[in-house]
Design a protein around this nucleic acid. Sequence first.
DNA 1: CTCCTAATGATAATAGTTCTCAATAATGTT
DNA 2: AACATTATTGAGAACTATTATCATTAGGAG
Lengths: 139, 139
Amino acid sequence: MDLSRRLRSRGHRVTPQRKAVLEVLQENEGVPLDPEAVFELTRERHAGIGLATVYRTLELFRDLGVVLRVHLHEGSQHYEINTGGHHHHMVCVSCGSVDEFDGCVVDDLEESIREDSDFVVTSHCLSLFGYCPACLTAR
Amino acid sequence: MDLSRRLRSRGHRVTPQRKAVLEVLQENEGVPLDPEAVFELTRERHAGIGLATVYRTLELFRDLGVVLRVHLHEGSQHYEINTGGHHHHMVCVSCGSVDEFDGCVVDDLEESIREDSDFVVTSHCLSLFGYCPACLTAR
DNA sequence: CTCCTAATGATAATAGTTCTCAATAATGTT
DNA sequence: AACATTATTGAGAACTATTATCATTAGGAG
Ligand SMILES: [Mn+2]
Ligand SMILES: [Mn+2]
Ligand SMILES: [Zn+2]
Ligand SMILES: [Zn+2]
């Protein structure tokens, strides 16, 4: 997870903005953040950062494999730090909270698709929707 | 799949616009369409329909369970007719084509989550990304 | 330190979606 | 069949999220 190394190896520069965004993402492991949230949190650290830079940085990080893009059931995208530990998400449709869960069942599926079809799977995206414990008891 | 019945049972009115949108979705089974595409296709059938009506109708249909919202790796949403046959999608990251596949592996996962956690899963969304046969040979 | 140019911030532009509101038309009632 | 009620519609404004533009700044190789 050495950002400087990863950036330089691809010819990118190491800037305080990029370091600040990374810190925010690392400190929010387990909490997928949308660009606006990353912007607000990063501003506390690097006051003058622009929103466009946040968007650019998130796309760059995604390209570098530093972050993953998560699909929640909403319009805007969310990003989370890529810890290497493959997992998926349970999204509460009531309060919007996100839980992670390990044990991906898709690996086997990818395997069978590799055999049955000519489609080459390179990645997948799985999210479960429902109600979290808190929202269930609050009824 | 009786639209009129389903609409009336919830106190909604049966309009030519709604019937036209349904027809478009039915004729494009297997092809998730975004609102703009639904708009264009529906116009060929009901010339004067407005874009806002398409958005409203898709949301209503989703509420009624007539359509499903599909998450492709893009900004805008896509909708497809709900045939009742549960399936998921393989999206080609090169040409954007979408294939369907049956055999959902998530059912088992939902089961194990129901046992291991207090989260109640009501739905899920799974998409595979990769390269379709056409794009693979074209290289 | 100097130079080159990648990166940045401000802001304009674009795209997608939702809102507003007056006009229309679907349905229930006479 | 005519009427009354009110859900629905179309047009366009408004809004939100994202991307593009461009002059300025600053990372880092030499
Ligand atoms: Mn996560
Ligand atoms: Mn489908
Ligand atoms: Zn393809
Ligand atoms: Zn499934």
